[in-house]
Nucleic acid binder design. Sequence first.
RNA 1: GGGGUUGUAGCUCAGUUUGGUUAGAGUACUGGCCUGUCACGCCAGGUGCCGCGGGUUCAAGUCCCGUCAACCCCGCCA
Length: 596
Amino acid sequence: MITKEQQRTNFSGEFTKSDLVGKRVTVNGWVLNYRDHGDLTFVDLRDRSGYVQLVFDPQANPDAHAAAKKLRHEDVVAATGIVLERQPELVNPRMATGKYEIKIDKIWVLNKSKTPPFQLDEPEIGEEVRLKYRYLDFRRPQMYNNMLMRSKMTGTIRNFLDDNGFLEVETPILNKSTPEGARDFLVPSRMQHGQFYALPQSPQIFKQILMVGGIERYYQIARCFRDEDLRADRQLEFTQIDIEMSFVTQDDIIDIMSKMIAKILKDNYNTDIKLPIRRMTYKDAIDKYGIDRPDLRFGMEIVDVTETVKDCEFQVFKNVIAAKGMIKCLPVPDGNRLSRKDLDELIAFVGRYGSKGMAWMRVKDGKLESNIVKYFSDDVQKKLIDATGAKEGHALLFIGDANSKVVYDSIANLRLEVGERFGLRGKDKIELVWVVDFPLFAWNADENRWDATHHPFTAPKMEQIPMLDTSPGEVLSDAYDLVMNGIELGGGSIRIHDPEVQSKIFRLLNIDDESAKVKFGFLLDALSFGAPPHGGLAFGFDRIVMLFQKLDNIREVIPFPKTQKGQCLMSETPSGVTKVQLDELGIRAVEVKANK
RNA sequence: GGGGUUGUAGCUCAGUUUGGUUAGAGUACUGGCCUGUCACGCCAGGUGCCGCGGGUUCAAGUCCCGUCAACCCCGCCA
């Protein structure tokens, strides 16, 4: 409880200018630190705005001084007194409010604190203890700043979309389960035993339905759920900026979303980016960077040398070529800095992605050298130097494999790893690119059918629709991803608005009419009632905040994240439930951990 | 499901390579002294399931096996 008298007149961080000097002020906050000199005592009082020094003089105010001597870290206090300008020699230049202090004549201890489990001013606390005591973690300026910027960014986004005629519409959290895509979180139905809801992986179908409903411009800051394994940039639940628009082209969507991203950066980080954001085709991205989300903060483009080395005597390459595989080369400027140890580490690194090895050469005195150069004739060597543009001091790193996925995964990540080691991936650089012209389908060799590259509602390029019958693998789609520094911020597509085309796509995806009807019948129905041409996209909001805050872990910008095993260390979620609860739901657990 | 890293005082970490006396430092905490500090200083004090379980050994924080947790990665996920 707090009284009117105790309530703050000013935030602690406000005392940076002389206008408050001589005034009586009241501050509220937490004890950041205390310095007891026996008589004269200082307390740094922190609130969310910063901190200010309180002075307690036993001569002037013996009661307040006596109370101050008992203060400890994180006690909650209200204090009132007169703002003083410090003598020049007493100014603390490292402190925002270091020119001023408050001479306190009355203090109220609103709440004592137990000794905190970690020191809030320690910069590197183990994440486990931070997550367990997240409420203390929030008191640290870094975390407060992450939450503040997250909030500011949603504000910018809402304002921007509002100004551009978007409606914020909510969609259900309890949905129909579909086996495609990620694993669903299931919620049992109490009223219909054996039936389940699924939490949304994204509001995809509903936002298309809203377009059919004539909403025309929709957005939602939507929580999404995917029951898959966690990573540094993946949580079980995460937030999407979800967008859908009617009567638009791909260019319209790319244009307006580019402006939104530019505005977020301008308004919150005072950072200008050049519009339009550059574009790159999926094919170029794969050819040059081996991946559909290229990190363009540095060059080092990949070169295909399968043809170039076809006449070499190096058995590994010969075997790859015989198996109709591919050989890619990463030319590394200044690559002679890579020691044998570095190279061995890189060989181990590409092993993660299935590569059985990594060949390498160095350019020295205009010639190639390494343990395998002898298997390459002078002619082949010359061709290699030409093809890769290798210059003095370059290293050429080679990945060859019969399996093209192994080659691309390995060389793409090798490029990133070398870039990392050479310090080319600075967090201050922002390199945005729209990757466009994705193939509509990817061949699923395991199940001998086509998979949707984006999702089953993505529109093929209009002029390529006839190719669906003849060469579906070559059909491109109106799909687009926005990539920043090698991380996908978001992506979307123009959707199919013609129920016949949609049915045809389902058939190619091996979803027969019957199951299409069961799973998506209401969408197909909706499309048949005058669905407007429409499209949209979704941004991974947590990732955007993470990147803009120059962090490399999404948990830093999510208030209450889960650990890699899906636990909340603070609330100890998940947990057991009572038998009564299960009975109501018609559920029986096969294995039961002791209920807490 | 798999590979790797880490786990020692409330916190941050040293000690583990090469087993050997009573396991250390800083900070936090408790008490005392100190009127200008701001990472205040000085004095004194308590602080340990060395993640857990088993094994080897005369002897284990240290070696071996298993296990748990957190993190990074592969698979998975768009």
